[in-house]
Amino acid sequence: MAKLLEVEGLQVRYGGIEAVRGLSFSAEEGRIETIIGANGAGKSSALLAISGIVRKAGGSIRFRGEDITHMRADRIVRLGLVQVPEGRAILSPLTVAENLELGAWTRSDAAGVRAELERVYGLFPRLSERRAQLAGSLSGGEQQMLAIGRALMASPKLLLLDEPSMGLAPMLVSLIFSTIAGIAASGTSVLLVEQNARAALKIADRGLVLSHGAASIEGTSEELLANPAVVEAFLGKV
């Protein structure tokens, strides 16, 4: 199976704080890979470093065989690696439609973009109803739909999702997770960071536990769900 993303010895530092210390993992095409870990484990830092938003203190990253370690963030998006960051990064003063349109900023195939927009509106009819509304006035759940829909507008090869279920009511959480499973089924690979480990492992093919900035446990979702250390740390309280 072709390696889509290869992360080798990734390090991220903020001043004296070592947020990520030598993280290595890979993501394969057509799969959902999940990263779980406690608060402050370095999950968001790792994702932001992969996307070129946060500076890497060390390590290397390859995407579709190309070295993107020192690539600018906008070029990385152009290659098809798109992130929905923690907190969603919605452009509040712009409308829903404008947010989606900017999601396709890197594309020049007008017909493809129009078709993509219809797909996104089909996936999230709520966004279609609110297309002329300012994004900042959407509810938290709607903003998450907008963030995911906007990322899909770029037609990504790999979608990075940082805690998409954060702050959402249980019903919305299951909608978001089934949507993510659907996105992967239609051919977009997904790297999913989650606090909600059980739900994440349920839809993921493989998982990785990040603790103190490095991978501590790795395996298939079944292996992790059955691993006593994982059960105790992340799945204990149901």
Binding site: S51, G52, I53, A73, D74, V77, R78, V82, Q83, P85, A89, I90, L91, S92, P93, L94, E98, L102, G103, W105, T106, R150, A154
Partner: peptide, 15 residues
Amino acid sequence: RAVAASQKAARLLGI
């Protein structure tokens, strides 16, 4: 307007 609202968000959109 996207850059005015958030440079980080704009960069994540490939701008």
